[in-house]
Structures are given as C-alpha cells and as structure tokens.
Amino acid sequence: MSKFSFLSGKIGKLFLAPFGDDNPITVKVLGICSALAVTVKIKPAFVMALSVTVVTAFSNLIISLLRNGIPSRIRIIVQLVVVALMVIIVDQFLKAFVYDVSKQLSVFVGLIITNCIIMGRLEAFALANKPFPSFIDGLGNGFGYGLILIVVAFFRELLGSGTIWGYSIIPASLYAKNNGFYVNNGLMILPPTALIIIGLIIWWQRSRRKNLIDIS
C-alpha cells in the first residue's frame, strides 16, 4: 500500500472524500442536470466527466492563486469569468481533437459553466485554501462526479441500447426483430431514468452509511 500512501494523508482525504461521503451528486446533490443529459451513452459521459474534472481542478487552482486579491464584492463574477474561460478552452480543445464526441455533447459542454459543483467548490474551498489542496479538491470532486455519471451511463446504455462504449453486448439473435424475445428498454434513453438510477444509488449509499441520513 506504500504506493498509495499519499491517499492516507490530508491531501488524500481531500481527493477521496468526493468518491464516498462527500460525493457531489449523491450527497451534495449538485450537478444533477448534466447527469440527466449526457448519460445515455458511456463515451460522452466519460468525456463530460473528464471535461468537468479539468474545469473544476483548474478553476479551483486559479481562484485559489488569486484568492487574496479578489475583491469580495465581485468575487462571484470573478469566479464565473474564470470558469467560463476554462469551459471555452475545454470546448475548443474537444472540437479540435475529439470532434465526434464534442458533437454528441453539443451544448452540454458550454453548460458546464452552470454546473453547481464548480461554483460550489470555488466558494466553499478554493477561496479559503492554498492552491495545491484546492487543485486536489477540484480533481476529487470532478472524479466523484464522473464516477456517478459513468455508473448511470453504464446502466442506461446497457439496458437502453444494448451496448457498452458503443460495442454490442446483447447478442443480435436475441432481439425481437431477429425473431428473439429481447427488446431494448426505450425508457432508459429518456432523462427521467437517470433520476431513478441516481435515486437508487443514493438509496444504496445511505442504507450503508447511516451517518449520511439527515434526521432533521
């Protein structure tokens, strides 16, 4: 375990907490909107997760570097400008290097700006912490968000399209159109299913971690 010793320290905690008890989607219930929109297939969900991670990590870093100079009266505007800058850069990179995926994600890359996780981490963490921990916090939250996105996309793609990462999993001969019995579940493709799956994940998580249950 010595290889992962950095995960046991304070920095490690910052990185790991968003995967479990501090997960941005299932515990803080932030960033739900994009979790509904881009989780029909795994590949776009993966690229989206990566993009959000880059944006949270670097916005956190930049804001943390600037934190002593930012006038508190316009701090939200400053955060917004930094986030927008990062999002546009990511969007331009996607268009240049993974054109087909960027087409699938279309407007949702631009909408990362409105992802509550990013502003949430800037306000709650980066403004009060040093650059390196802020960067790690951003990475952790991005990955924590991505984890849920990919889990949701896995079930939606498997049950809704019968594929994983675009490769067919269900044998073609089982399908009703080839005289089999199987039909893809069309409901899985529609956004409400994402809510149901996220709901199930939250249920599962809270039934195992009693400390997350809000008694009030």
């Binding site: 800058l85 546009i88 850069i89 331009q92 990179f93 268009k95 240049a96 290097f97 054109y99």
Partner: peptide, 12 residues
C-alpha cells in the same frame, strides 16, 4: 481565449 482559438482553428 483569442490565442487558444487561433491556435486550434486549423485543427477544427
């Protein structure tokens, strides 16, 4: 942003 867009434009 201008620099990034200018650099990436040929690729796009």
């Amino acid at each position: 942003l201008s620099i990034v867009v200018l650099i990436l434009k040929p690729f796009q």
